[in-house]
Nucleic acid binder design. Sequence first.
DNA 1: TCACGGAATATTTTT
DNA 2: TATTCCGTGA
Length: 642
Amino acid sequence: MRIDYEQHLNSAQLEAVKHLEGPLLVIAGAGSGKTRTLTYRVAYLVEKGVVPSAILLLTFTRKAAHEMLHRATRLLDRRCQQVAGGTFHSFANLNLRRFASLLGLSADFAILDRADAESLIALLRKEMDISKKARSFPRKTTLANIFSQTVNKTKSIEDIILEDYPQFTDVLDLVTDMHRAYEQRKRDHQFLDFDDLLVFFERLLSEHEDVRRRLAATYQYIMVDEYQDTNKIQADILYRLAQTNRNIMVVGDDSQSIYAFRGANFKNIMDFPDWFAGTRIIGLEENYRSVQPVLDLTNLIIDQAREKYSKHLFTRRTGGALPQLVENEDENSQSRYVVERIMALNRQGVELDKIAVLFRASYHSFDLEIELSRERIPFIKYGGFKFAESAHIKDVLAHMRVIANPSDRVSWYRILMLIDKVGPRSAQKLFNDIRSAKAGCAGMVSLKLPNNTPPGVARLQKLYQTIDTHAPSVADMGQAVVDYYQPLLKAAYDDHPKRARDLEHLVDIMQRYQRLEQFLTDMALEPPNASVDNGLGDETVDAPSRLVLSTIHSAKGLEWNTVFIIWALDGRFPSMQSIYKEHELEEEMRLMYVAATRAEENLIFTYPNNVYEHSLGIILNRPSRFIDMLPDTILEKVYNQL
DNA sequence: TCACGGAATATTTTT
DNA sequence: TATTCCGTGA
């Protein structure tokens, strides 16, 4: 053995790492060395002679998978890079393309991200003339939500509506019709949305035993991170994949389950031993991250939980200041307080990248971002708004998608309607003409345009002629599209210079791709999701130390010396709409737990105490109920005098 | 048929 | 508060 496992791991971690055969459930408390355990187990398996490509590591984000394999590689050697890994969605995508024909799919199906799905729904809504049939009807985002919930919670449309959207009970039939039309249209156009990736993959495994056997034979050792965030379909997928060898290790923490809103069911983790008889259960309870005062507080937060595997985290890290709760006059004084504290910490030698500001919702940091810019404090923001979801990026991507998939009606409509004087009607006509003219975007190229066609359409035709004749690389295509799009951008947005810069970055990203399809898939499945100063973050550049702003969801698994949790205001966190629903309130509480357990040494909650809540017409002025009742010996109360 | 403006409406989090 | 949706006027 090259690695001295006994030296580097505690006894519980060691037990998990050395577990070779059979189902294993690891309940890993916050900061208990979960990633470490997974990493060492990869190395251990490889050292034991397991072929690296027979190991499948499913994680929540591709970043997490990369990180783990990188660490395993550093620990052992390059063999660890051969380990198969990724998110459930990306793994499903890979296999679906391989076995597409078995399910009646084309191998180059396109992936609809949320915004694409919504556009398709908007299109159907128009076609079905909903406005004539119903007075109040859910909007496209709500519809997309409902459709997604039925899949992820495995419930009928009716159940979802009755439980979560009772205001739409009287249009239930119409919603069901819409849903049917949506499913049909996706099939017609070889579209798969995020949920379909899982559904079809599950179907592939359940209906094609030969494929299931093949995959099970390939991936003899399966490891799953963040198991508490899997939903029913994902659990089913794992069950089938692991059925032959039963070498499956899942790691999770029921106290950190924060994705119930998209169907995650932390009961999966409770039920795991029932699904796999003979499961060994190992608990990791020693916390290596936080000092005692922080841990005292987080233990008290999670003690309020009603259902959980009971565990009590302990630490050997003594010392450390008492966590603080800071009351502020209003939002801006909260922002300025945080900025002051950050500058003070920085002067004391705490690097900016050791500090994070966490919040419930992405927009909670807007005011703070302004103050940070004013003080010229560099920061990087994770979560919330996605670069790839902004309108101008989607516009450019649409132009490229029709090259890969000329029957992509949604993209064609998007492209065509951007043109001046082209509305839904002309778009439909043009689309039909393009489709009947010829296969491929050549249909666009060879199109005969009548004299009364808006001039913008001719420009578009020229674009595709250029692309068609020069058969350029992905980046060249992108550049041609951007050049074409530039005038439209200027006309549509006041802030076009900033958006134009985003497009330059987009072309930079394209440079890395040989194949257009690969680029488009990656943009849907793993879009770059960090933004620097509201632009696109480039993670390859060795940037100077930067402060981290992050939604709590995006902060999972990470840690910092100092953590600020802003907007710890009752009515914002927990949010107003979750207060009367017990299970949602529980999830908010776990979210607070996740946030607080990110801190190593300093933990500071802040809240503005004079916030008007529009929907109810009341003033919010209490700290979050999850920390409000903590005694002064646990949480120091401070008033910001600034 | 399209563009525009005003009224309605939902308001988190992410693959 | 910002977006979405619909009706109206060009």
